[in-house]
């Protein structure tokens, strides 16, 4: 199971990196959010995917899954959510002010 997840995370990272290297700002934002998806799955996978009950004590199960990485992922999700929202608004604002979505033409323009 971990192997499949590792391959999936690898694919997510590949697509994310590919999108970040592209020209349009919107594709770059999408690339970063794919990267964060990949890294959250990685956190979940690296802590082990052994079978066990959900980490709720009321279940009276013999084994539970590790609750720590879930808390870490939850923290990381909201952080990257905030940053992505900011990035989208920044891209929108850049489009309004600079009048372009192409990262190359943004660079070339002189003051």
């Amino acid at each position: 199971m971990e192997l499949i997840m590792a391959v999936a995370v690898g694919i997510l990272f590949t697509i994310g990196v590919y999108l970040i290297l592209s020209k349009s700002l919107l594709r770059i934002v999408l690339g970063t959010s794919l990267l964060t998806h990949g890294v959250h799955l990685l956190l979940l996978t690296m802590a082990g995917l052994k079978k066990g009950a959900a980490p709720v004590l009321g279940d009276n199960a013999k084994t539970y899954v590790d609750p720590l990485p879930q808390a870490l992922i939850l923290t990381s999700i909201v952080i990257s959510f905030g940053v992505t929202a900011f990035y989208f608004v920044l891209a929108y604002r850049s489009y309004q002010t600079l009048g372009t979505d192409e990262i190359d033409s943004i660079k070339e323009e002189k003051e």
Binding site: T32, L35, L42
Partner: peptide
Amino acid sequence: LRETSKYLLINIVSSTLFVAAVAYLYA
């Protein structure tokens, strides 16, 4: 605006790597 989008991108990528490094270390 121009420089912020660069700064933001590099820091998002490095933060992602930070989380990945923490994941590996925890494992």
